Simulated scan of single mutants.
Amino acid sequence: MTTQPANATVFGAVHLGYVVIETDRFADWRRFGTDAIGMHHDSLSPDLMRFRLDDQECRFLLTRGPAEDVVATGWHVDDHAAFERIEARIRAHGVPCTRGSDEEAALRGVERLLRFPGPKGITQEIYTNPKRAAEPLRMLASGFVTGDSGMGHVALTSTKPAQIRGYFDTVFDARLTDYIDETISGVKLKIRFLRVNERHHSIAVAAVRGLPLDPIRTRVQHLNIQAATLDDVARSYQRVHELGFDMALSVGQHTNDRELSYYARTPSGFEWEVGWNPIVIDESTWEPTTHQGISTWGHLPVGQTVVDKLAQFRAGARSLARPELTVPALSGTGIPDD
């Protein structure tokens, strides 16, 4: 039997599998997830609940606590060989790994759970063999796109974007898909889009150009899930409005991945993008480019006031005194801070 070398790529064998959110707003999150977005809900205890998008037992695990934020992201690794290559890389860089307990793995509906530090204090978890739920889906949406592309993407804001890019390159062999340059309220942003499989991006990293500011209070700026149909996007958009949840950005289409989407504001404060029909990357032909502007049309702010903008600037000012958490040992040295 031949074995692959330790430096063999894991690109394509890694998929965003679940997200762990810590919140004290369980009632609001249940309404948001089931009645507005249209996901399947399972209540496990007064302090634990899950949302499903498909036949996997868990796509979002909500735990009771004060963070009001994403605290962990889980990555499905296709096989034990790739899992062991990732673990070996992390340990070789002197970064501690912790085996998840049987109870923790069961809550996430997975086997062979391993966790380790990630950028911005978000714990990264890898696992194999997601468990299939015994009960059929009960949800308002007709379905969501997961499979080989994973379940969507995570978007971060950062004062150290090159280090985040280096981290995911070191750990998952992430590839740069493209960039977007955008100016919002006079602030110039550069956004990097990183992929670990055929999905256009599983990680997006936005940075303020020329200033060490992070204008977002939460560790994540938004989470994305992909609806099965355009009708699902339209119906959930209507439900978000009717149920009184805040809408961050109206329906629009992105310049780079061509996804049609909208952004709602979650009960914890970060944003939630529901999208449809993004492009799939062809590795044989793709070349990174830079796009001017986030959207070709739409994605307009909804209900944003001067007070909201001032609060965002205050958050950015506070970030100057709060060092951003990184994992230097895994952040690489060969990635240019472009």
Rank of each mutant, 00 (worst) to 15 (best):
I191P: 04
E135S: 13
I225G: 07
S158E: 00
K131R: 14
P119E: 03
E111H: 13
T218C: 14
D231R: 13
H153C: 03
L114F: 02
T157C: 15
K190H: 07
H201M: 11
L230M: 15
H222F: 15
N197F: 06
S202E: 09
S185V: 10
G150N: 05
G147T: 05
G118F: 05
G152R: 13
Q124V: 13
L213T: 06
G210R: 10
R175G: 03
K188M: 14
R132G: 02
V205K: 06
E125H: 07
E125F: 05
D169G: 09
A162V: 04
E125Q: 10
H201I: 08
R138A: 10
L230H: 03
L156T: 06
I216Q: 11
D181P: 14
I184M: 15
R192A: 15
V205A: 03
N197I: 08
I122K: 02
T128A: 07
K190G: 01
F193C: 03
V205H: 00
A204N: 00
A134E: 01
H222D: 12
G143L: 13
A133V: 01
P215G: 14
I216W: 03
F172D: 07
E182T: 14
L137C: 00
G121P: 07
R219T: 07
L156F: 10
P212H: 07
N197D: 03
F168Q: 01
D169C: 12
I180N: 04
L189V: 13
R192Q: 11
G143C: 07
A207V: 09
N129F: 12
L194K: 12
D214S: 14
G121Y: 01
A227M: 14
D214A: 14
I225H: 09
P119V: 09
A206K: 00
A228W: 03
R199V: 01
P215F: 15
H201S: 04
R217Q: 14
R199W: 05
A204P: 00
G166F: 06
S149P: 00
V187S: 12
V220L: 08
T157D: 04
D232H: 11
T218I: 11
A204V: 07
V171M: 04
E182C: 09
K160D: 00
V171H: 06
L140F: 14
G152A: 11
D169W: 08
V233T: 01
G186W: 01
P119T: 09
D169N: 13
